[in-house]
Amino acid sequence: LHIEINVNGLRIELHNVSEELAERIREILEKVDDREEARRLAEELIK
């Protein structure tokens, strides 16, 4: 499954994740104000 999410102008592509996991990642990242911090957090979440 390939999912693309957009959060605060940051486009993140997720591969091989469930829709539920992608939604949780999006919800978490929406709470982060700083774009660079959101990017770093996204990288950690999808490892």
Results as ranks from 00 to 15, higher is better:
Ile5Glu: 02
Val7His: 11
Gly9Ser: 00
Val7Thr: 02
Arg39Asn: 07
Glu27Leu: 12
Arg24Trp: 06
Lys47Val: 11
Glu36Lys: 09
Lys31Asn: 13
Asn16Arg: 04
Leu41Gln: 10
Glu27His: 13
Ile5Asp: 02
Ala22Thr: 06
Arg26Ser: 05
Leu14Asn: 00
Val17His: 02
Asn16Asp: 08
Glu44His: 11
Ile5Ala: 00
Ser18His: 05
Glu19Phe: 14
Arg11Cys: 09
Leu10Arg: 10
Ile25Cys: 02
Arg11Ala: 15
His15Ser: 05
Val17Ser: 05
Leu14Met: 08
Ile25Thr: 01
Lys31Ile: 08
Arg11Glu: 15
Arg26Asp: 01
His15Arg: 05
Asn8His: 05
Leu1Pro: 08
Glu19Pro: 14
His15Lys: 05
Asn8Thr: 01
Arg39Met: 15
Leu41Tyr: 05
Ile46Gly: 04
Leu21Thr: 12
Glu23Ser: 12
Ser18Lys: 04
His2Gln: 06
Glu36Trp: 04
Arg39Trp: 13
Gly9Ala: 00
Arg39Gly: 07
Ser18Glu: 04
Ala38Gln: 09
Lys47Tyr: 07
Asp34Ser: 09
Arg26Gln: 07
Lys31Val: 11
Arg40His: 11
Val7Lys: 02
Glu44Cys: 10
Gly9Lys: 00
Asp34Val: 07
Asp33Cys: 05
Ile28Arg: 08
Lys47Ala: 11
Leu29Ala: 05
Glu23Met: 11
Ile5Tyr: 00
Asp34Asn: 12
Asn8Glu: 13
Ile3Asn: 02
Asp33His: 13
Ile46Leu: 13
Arg11His: 15
Asp34Thr: 09
Asn16Glu: 06
Glu37Tyr: 04
Glu19Ile: 15
Gly9Cys: 03
Glu43Tyr: 04
Glu23Pro: 03
Ile12Cys: 08
Glu27Ile: 10
Leu10Val: 15
Asp34Gln: 07
Ile25Leu: 10
Glu4Gln: 09
Leu41Asp: 02
Leu14Trp: 02
Ile46Tyr: 03
Val17Leu: 09
Ala42Lys: 01
Val17Tyr: 05
Glu4His: 09
Glu4Asn: 07
Ala38Ile: 14
Lys31Cys: 07
Ile28Asp: 01
Glu43Val: 07
Glu23Gly: 13
Asp34Gly: 09
Ala22Phe: 09
Ile46Glu: 03
Gly9Trp: 00
Ile3Pro: 02
Val32Gln: 11
Glu20Asn: 09
Arg26Ile: 10
Asn6His: 09
Arg24Gly: 05
Lys31Ala: 11
Arg35His: 15
Glu4Trp: 01
Gly9Arg: 00
Asp34Met: 06
Arg26Glu: 02
Glu43Cys: 15
Ile12Met: 07
Glu36Asn: 09
Arg26Val: 10
Arg11Pro: 13
Glu23Asn: 14
Leu1Val: 12
Ser18Tyr: 04
Lys47Trp: 05
Glu43Gln: 08
Ile3Phe: 10
Leu21His: 08
Leu14Cys: 03
Asp33Val: 13
Arg11Phe: 15
Leu14Gln: 00
Val7Tyr: 02
Ala42Met: 11
Glu23Lys: 13
Arg24Cys: 05
Glu23Arg: 14
Glu30Lys: 08
Asn6Cys: 11
Val17Gly: 11
Arg40Phe: 05
Leu14Ile: 07
Asp33Ala: 12
Asn6Lys: 03
Asn16Trp: 08
Asp34Lys: 07
Leu41Val: 11
Arg40Gln: 12
Arg24Thr: 09
Arg35Gln: 13
Glu13Tyr: 09
Glu27Gln: 12
Ala38Pro: 02
Leu29Ser: 01
His15Trp: 07
Ile25Arg: 00
Glu20Cys: 03
Glu37Gly: 08
Asp33Gly: 13
Ser18Pro: 07
Val32Met: 10
Glu36Phe: 05
Glu19Ser: 13
Leu14Glu: 01
Ile3Arg: 04
Val17Met: 07
Asp33Ser: 14
Gly9Phe: 00
Asp33Trp: 13
His15Phe: 07
Asn16Phe: 10
Glu23Ile: 13
Ala42Glu: 01
Arg40Cys: 09
Leu41Lys: 10
Ile5Asn: 01
Leu41Glu: 05
Arg24Lys: 13
Leu45Met: 12
Ile25Ala: 02
Arg35Asn: 13
Val32Ser: 10
His2Met: 09
Leu21Ser: 07
Ala38His: 03
Glu20Val: 11
Glu13Ala: 10
Glu36Cys: 07
Glu13Gln: 14
Leu29Pro: 00
Ile46Asp: 03
Arg26Tyr: 08
Ile46Val: 13
Leu29Glu: 01
His15Glu: 04
Glu30Val: 12
Asn6Tyr: 01
Glu4Ile: 15
Leu45Ile: 13
Glu44Asp: 13
Val32His: 12
Ile5His: 00
Arg39Ile: 15
Glu19Asp: 06
Glu13Thr: 15
Leu14Val: 08
Asn6Met: 06
Leu10His: 15
Glu37Thr: 11
Leu41Arg: 09
Asp33Leu: 15
Glu13His: 10
Glu13Trp: 09
Leu41Ser: 05
Leu10Tyr: 02
Val7Glu: 10
Glu19Trp: 15
Glu13Cys: 14
Leu45Cys: 06
Asp34Trp: 08
Arg24Gln: 11
Ala38Thr: 09
Arg24Asp: 03
Ile25Lys: 00
Ile3Gly: 02
Lys47Ser: 12
Arg40Glu: 07
Glu20Arg: 06
Leu41His: 06
Glu4Tyr: 02
Asn6Ala: 02
Ile12Asn: 00
Asp34Glu: 07
Ile5Thr: 01
Lys47Phe: 08
Leu45Trp: 05
Leu21Met: 13
Glu36Leu: 08
Gly9Met: 00
Asn16Leu: 07
Val17Ala: 12
Ile3Leu: 07
Asn8Leu: 00
Ala42Ser: 06
Val7Cys: 07
Ile25Trp: 04
Leu10Ser: 14
Ile46Trp: 04
His15Leu: 08
Glu23Gln: 13
His2Ala: 06
Leu14Phe: 06
Ile25Gly: 00
Arg40Asp: 06
Asn8Ser: 03
Asp34His: 09
Arg24Leu: 10
Leu21Phe: 15
Arg39Ala: 13
Asp33Thr: 14
Ala42Leu: 14
Leu14Gly: 02
Glu44Gln: 12
Asn16Gln: 06
Ala22Leu: 12
Asn8Ala: 09
Glu37Cys: 10
Glu37Ala: 09
Glu13Met: 15
Ile12Val: 08
Ala22Tyr: 10
Glu30Asp: 09
Asp33Lys: 14
Glu4Lys: 03
Glu19Cys: 10
Leu41Phe: 06
Leu21Lys: 05
Arg40Gly: 05
Ala22Met: 10
Arg24Phe: 06
Glu44Gly: 10
Ile5Cys: 07
Leu45Val: 11
His15Ile: 10
Ile28Asn: 02
Ile28Gln: 07
Glu27Lys: 12
Glu44Tyr: 03
Val17Asn: 03
Ile28Lys: 06
Asn6Val: 12
Ile25Val: 14
Glu44Ile: 12
Arg40Thr: 12
Arg40Tyr: 04
Glu44Arg: 05
